[in-house]
Design a protein around this nucleic acid. Structure first.
Length: 572
DNA sequence: GCCGTTTTCGGCCCGACTGTTTTCAGTCG
């Protein structure tokens, strides 16, 4: 089985670390890191690209040499240069660089001075006070390393966007009380609405910045103030979250927002455009020589390099700069464009509230229609509906539709896709419904080929309107099942089947890249709350965030249609 | 090692903070 993109990227990153420790040309090191980022973020696997005879040097930051190395890794999993480097430099040194405050130079110093090779070596050296004796280190460095070692788990921890919101909200509320504060924005991946967030980057403009810093570092949830300066401070909260606060003057607000929103790749690309025009772009503004020519608003920063404002969700250097230059930026879908929700559970299966209260909550939320999609009989753990109970529900829906005004309930079901790709209910049952949602809920571990075929077979059913949560992943909890998403989306396009973007914050399934692929293939996407309670419609906004990251416009989204148009589409 | 609207060589984003050293390298975002 060929290496995944992430595995190839990890190899390049490790190689970069070890080369850096050895003191290699820093630009060569950067080249490997850039390549790692390109490969890791690429929507298709390197193996697939090679199978399709794609020239890898067409990918950004991949030249002849790295293309050959990727080919080697795909064909036999080998990267001879890495083996060579690991012969002379202990591989575990690359792990040490993950400790905050330890970079290549200091890791090397520790290795040369007191023969540190592993995390265990480092722990022992810290405890015996050897580290402080190494040149360039001291007592404070040793203490810091000790604290970081205690918390270090080995993997980089990113939390779900929804959880980050819960941490950010009270902090922002607290910061707003600071004297002299003018504007505050949570930037970084939080503002780009990425599905997971690593740390919080908060940007403030203020008259008297010292008061703001003082106020910030006095926040009660802070466990440690890692650094504190005039314009920038870094703290760790008790929950482990790192928070960076930057204070800039009002005239720099736009360029600072742009800079701290990122992504890093996007910023670098914009700066390069600036350089071409003879400008220097930093967090304080756009400068021609010493003269500030832009920076109070983000719009002015983009305008300085002849671009329209690019929405934060698109700033990943995945083609948005090129699209902006050609005036081809998508007009991204908004929450208010959604007219209905096509994935809803009631207390008939694993939902918490009754049909009636779900309908009332949806109407209250402003929706025009609501598909009731309880589970089917195979999903016993959710008390899935059999033919008889489904019939009862359909009658209840008819009755309720007669009583309700302002919202229409659609008769539907989330029918299980069985292991062989058949659906859990007979055609004669499904054909009575307005809408059928198909989903995989068991046998997650089939091979890629079998899992893909299973889903393709399900989509062959004339009744399958929407493929729900296509990959089955749960962020930070369960990997996606192994599927060929491109094949599935191509099949969906051919059958006029839609795919779901499940808006649950721990699903967000499709991914942003998946949305983009769907759009390019002409597959409509249903942004669905998968509501299990009357309060469950609020998750739609996370779905919209993800859809925006996936370049979706209102027209790409199935449930932006008015009811009449939707019903037309469902007839097919 | 990559890259090119100054293109096959000579650049490669830019600034803040810390700790150790004593004028700045290392690290980070």
């Amino acid at each position: 089985m060929a290496l995944h993109n992430s595995e190839i990227a990890d190899r390049f990153d490790r190689l970069a670390d070890l080369l850096e420790i050895e003191g290699a040309n820093p630009f060569r090191v950067r080249a490997y890191r850039n390549a790692a980022r390109t490969v890791r973020g690429y929507p298709r696997s390197m193996a697939d690209l090679l199978a399709d005879d794609v020239d890898l040097t067409e990918l950004p930051d991949i030249g002849d040499d790295l293309a050959k190395k990727i080919e080697g890794l795909v064909s036999n999993g080998e990267l001879p240069l890495l083996d060579e480097v690991e012969e002379r430099t202990p591989p575990a040194l690359s792990e040490l660089m993950k400790i905050q405050g330890l970079g290549a130079k200091r890791v090397r110093a520790l290795h040369e001075a007191i023969n540190i090779e592993t995390l265990e070596d480092l722990r022992a050296a810290v405890e015996s006070g050897q580290v402080r004796a190494v040149e360039g280190f001291g007592e404070k460095s040793e203490d810091k390393i000790r604290r970081r070692l205690k918390k270090f788990s080995g993997k980089d921890e990113r939390i779900k966007l929804s959880e980050a919101e819960q941490i950010a909200a009270p902090l922002v509320k607290y910061l707003e009380k600071a004297n002299g504060l003018k504007e505050i924005v949570v930037a970084g991946s939080f503002r780009r609405r990425k599905e997971t967030v690593g740390d919080l980057d908060i940007l403030i403009t203020a008259k008297t910045k010292n008061n703001v810093m003082e106020h910030f570092t006095s926040y009660e949830d802070i466990e440690e103030v890692a650094s504190r300066g005039e314009t920038r401070s870094t703290v760790y909260l008790r929950c482990g979250m790192q928070v960076d606060l930057r204070v800039v003057p009002q005239v720099s607000f736009g360029s600072a927002q742009h800079y701290f929103t990122g992504s890093k790749d996007h910023n670098i690309a914009v700066r390069k455009l600036g350089i071409k025009k003879g400008y220097k772009i930093n967090e304080y503004g756009v400068f021609e020589g010493d003269k500030r020519i832009a920076g109070e608003t983000e719009k002015s920063v983009y305008a300085s390099v002849d671009l329209p404002l690019i929405p934060p969700e698109l700033r990943e250097n995945r083609g948005e700069l090129e699209a902006a230059r050609e005036n081809q930026l998508p007009d991204l879908v908004r929450l208010e464009d959604l007219r209905g929700n096509l994935h809803t559970h009631t207390d008939a299966t694993d939902g918490r509230n009754s049909l009636k209260s779900m309908a009332a909550a949806a109407a209250e939320f402003g929706l025009e229609y609501l598909a009731i999609t309880d589970h089917s009989k195979h999903l016993k753990v959710a008390h899935g509906l059999d033919e008889k109970r489904l019939k009862q529900q359909l009658q209840a829906i008819d009755k309720l539709n007669d009583e309700l005004s302002g919202i229409r309930l659609l008769k539907s079901i989330e029918v299980d896709i069985l292991q062989d790709g058949k659906l859990d209910l007979a055609d004669s049952v499904l054909e009575q419904l307005d809408l059928v949602l198909c989903a995989v809920h068991h046998k997650f571990d089939l091979s890629k080929q079998k899992q893909t075929e299973r889903i393709l077979r399900a989509m062959d059913s004339p009744h399958c309107h929407i493929l729900a949560h296509p990959s089955g992943r749960l962020i930070n909890r369960r990997e996606a099942y192994d599927i060929d998403l491109e094949k599935i989306l191509e099949a969906a396009a051919a059958r006029s089947c839609a795919v779901e973007l499940n808006a649950q914050p721990d699903r967000l399934d499709l991914t942003d890249e998946g949305c983009r692929m769907a759009r390019e293939l002409g597959v409509k996407v249903s942004i669905a709350a998968d509501a299990h309670s009357a309060r469950g419609f609020d998750t739609l906004r996370f779905g919209v965030d993800q859809a925006r990251r996936g370049w979706l416009e209102a027209d790409d989204v199935l449930n932006t249609r008015p009811l009449k148009a939707l019903l037309e589409i469902l007839k097919r």
